[in-house]
Amino acid sequence: MTGMELFGTWIAALLTLCLMSFLYKDNPLFRFAEALFAGVSLGYYIGITMDQTLRPNLFEPLRDSGLTLETGHLLFAGLVGLNLYTRYVPKIAWFARSSLAIYVGYYVGINMVQKLQGEVLPQAAATMVDLTGGGSPTDALNALVVFIGVLTVLIYFFFSVEHKGVFGKASRVGIWFLMLGFGAAFGYTVMGRISLLIGRINFLVIQWIGGTLQALGIGG
């Protein structure tokens, strides 16, 4: 570990401890690290967007090829992007609407296809299967459970009809399926959060303390 890396590791470790101090109680060190967290994250956006997107996809093609038939639309994109910022100028704030319209329009369009062709159709197809289609009896039973589960969950989400009688009972079964899904999600969330904590403790023990000891020539 070089001196610069060790210095960086110490800064990182101190910031980690500042944030962890919130576990005891709210305090100025936590507030400091929290504000730095927000600021650094926003600054990070600026750096990566300018270096990884705007430079190679907008500035360089226009600089290298000039304004041609192929690159003309990039200039248009740049203007559409810049126009988004007119919303901060009260007198011409409505200019930004046109850019927003193109931006939202494109993503809404692609999202519609994605949801219908990429989710509703394959998910529904996987639910509507032939139970006698050659699989084992267990497969058929599982497929039946899935069919009942999907149907009853959809019934639960169908709010146009009052949940009474058979409809109400089916909706209740749907809730059970949902609860099982949410319970599983909770179990997995516990697992995920613990994993993230492991990452930080590992950093403090291995990289910070271990790295410092190694740099000082103590231990392996």
Partner: peptide, 22 residues
């Protein structure tokens, strides 16, 4: 899954965080 696999048929796999696994 719902764009690249659905529209182009490319086999895909996902390594996800535990929170989104279910």
């Amino acid at each position: 899954a719902n764009l690249i696999n659905a529209q182009y048929g490319l086999p895909i796999a996902v390594g996800c965080t535990a929170v989104s696994a279910p």
